[in-house]
Write a protein that binds this DNA or RNA. Structure first.
Length: 432
RNA sequence: GGAGGAGUGGCCGAGUGGUUGAAGGCGCUGCUCUCGAAAAGCAGUAUGCGGGAAACCGUAUCGCGAGUUCGAAUCUCGCCUCCUCCGCCA
């Protein structure tokens, strides 16, 4: 959530930027409650002060009859005021939580994803001397994917993935982990992308829990919307839709050492998504499933490093795409598309020759301190204890990256060449 | 799933109704001593919220939430987490 002090000082700005993200917030009402709340709080605290004073006065001995009567009166008054405070506080909290994070200054203002800005293009689209096929035409005919039988077992939007395609997924993951844990390679990425003030500290490989309790799910700011998330009602657990959902709250309630930052983690987990409201969309192939595996970065940093971590993660994503030789473009997402907790957001879309279009394979989210206010994750600095900045970004969404490889590396005889960098992770195999 | 035990500051640990926001120790910071370091001595050392230009004042926090009481770290109830033993299990 946003700091109420910031809202007090910049009411118009907050209202304007919220509107740019597509959220209508009643700042005047919020500040109104805020003031009432603080007035009442002052009153409550003065009564508590008298109660404490009385307790100190009578401590050691028995209070007199008169003092007990006085104490009872204070107690009754206090509980009456506290009852008045309850609804006020609830009202205040719900209005405060409804205020989205402020977009960074360079986020393009726009009303829908149509206003996203292509900020970079890379790679030569492959030319084929045949009609390129879609990934599902190739994979289904080769028995690398079977959705029919998966539907029988689990319903629509599930798939069996078989054989060499499975090996390719694990090659991809291994390759990525090797890069992300190698300080020298990270240094090179920082250099190649001309980044400044970025630490080359390696990422900690992590297998996180794939579920979170409701209290945690809420503390992270409901990163994934409720209707998009699977819930295990009997156990009060939510299935994560990405590793960042269980990486971000890792240090909930803790005060970290500035020396330990940036804290960088790369988590591998299965992601579960209900895909509500996508009926009839992307029904072919494995682009949009209820379940897929994903490697995801998460970082906790000092406020002044937050934006640089974001840019670093984007550079890493681009580096991986270039290593795989997959043409892509970078989308600077507009205010309406970056998401409620985001200060900035970037998508990378890979060229998919079979579908003759770009499709999203990566996201990078700069959350600033919006999430840390909910998870109460702070860091001790020379200027006091402040909320950390959170960044998260996709390394590889396994399914979609496999799609990009299949479609870009398809051959005339219906096979798939393996990108050079992955071949060592496939025991030298050059095609599947 | 059954039976027991435990959660106190950065860490260890004392504390079962009233000078306890919390003893003592460790750690950390500053000073003294020293050529310097170590040792020793002295002093300081949690966070949120509200008010204040600031100094500072008030308030809350002893796993979390509710309750009892004039007064709760301490008593009661619910929940969470961890540990030990038994059972089950990849």
């Amino acid at each position: 959530m946003l700091d109420i002090r910031f809202i007090r000082e910049n009411p118009n700005l907050v209202e304007e930027k919220s509107a740019q993200k597509g959220y209508k917030v009643d700042i005047k009402h919020l500040l109104d409650i805020d003031e009432k709340r603080r007035e009442l709080l002052a009153e409550i605290e003065s009564i508590r002060a008298r109660r404490n004073d009385l307790a100190t006065r009578t401590k050691g001995g028995k209070p007199t009859e008169q003092e007990i009567i006085e104490g009872k009166a204070l107690r009754d008054k206090l509980s009456q005021l506290e009852r008045e405070m309850d609804p006020l506080q609830l009202d205040f909290d719900s209005h405060l939580k409804a205020v989205p994070n402020m977009p960074a200054d360079d986020v393009p203002v726009g009303g829908s994803e149509a206003d996203n800005v292509v900020s970079k293009e890379w790679g030569e689209k492959p030319q084929f001397d045949f009609e390129p096929k879609t990934h599902w035409e190739i994979a289904e005919s080769r028995n690398l994917i079977d959705k029919q039988r998966a539907a029988k077992v689990a319903g629509s939007r599930f798939a069996y993935i078989f054989g060499d395609l499975v090996k390719l997924q694990f090659a991809l993951i291994q390759f990525a982990l090797d890069i992300l844990t190698n300080e020298e390679t990270l240094k090179k990425i920082i250099q190649d992308f001309e980044l400044e003030n970025v630490s080359p500290k390696p990422f900690m490989p992590t297998l996180p829990p794939a579920m979170a309790k409701t209290s945690v799910y809420e503390a992270t700011g409901r990163l994934n919307k409720e209707e998009q998330t699977y819930k295990l009602e009997d156990d009060d657990l939510w299935l994560n839709a990405s590793a960042e959902h269980t990486l971000a709250p890792m240090f909930m309630g803790e005060v970290l050492n500035a020396n330990d930052l940036p804290g960088r983690y790369v988590g591998y987990t299965t992601a579960f998504r209900r895909e509500a409201g996508t009926y009839g969309k992307d029904t072919e192939g494995i682009l949009r499933l209820h379940q897929f595996d994903k490697l995801e970065m998460e970082s906790f940093s000092l406020p002044e490093d937050g934006m640089n971590e974001h840019l670093f993660m984007i550079a890493i994503q681009e580096y991986f795409m270039r290593q795989l030789g997959i043409p892509y473009h970078v989308l600077n997402k507009c205010t309406a598309d970056i998401g409620f907790p985001n200060a900035r957001g970037v998508d990378i879309e890979a060229w998919m020759p079979g579908q003759n279009t770009y499709r999203e394979t990566h996201t990078a989210d700069f959350i600033s301190d919006f999430q840390a206010e909910g998870t109460k994750t702070r860091v001790k600095t020379d200027n006091g204890t402040v909320f950390v900045h959170n960044n998260d970004a996709t390394v590889f969404a396994a399914g979609r990256t496999l799609i990009a490889i299949i479609e870009n590396y398809q051959t005339k005889d219906g096979k798939i060449d393996i990108p050079k960098v992955l071949q060592p992770y496939m025991r030298g195999q050059t095609s599947i």
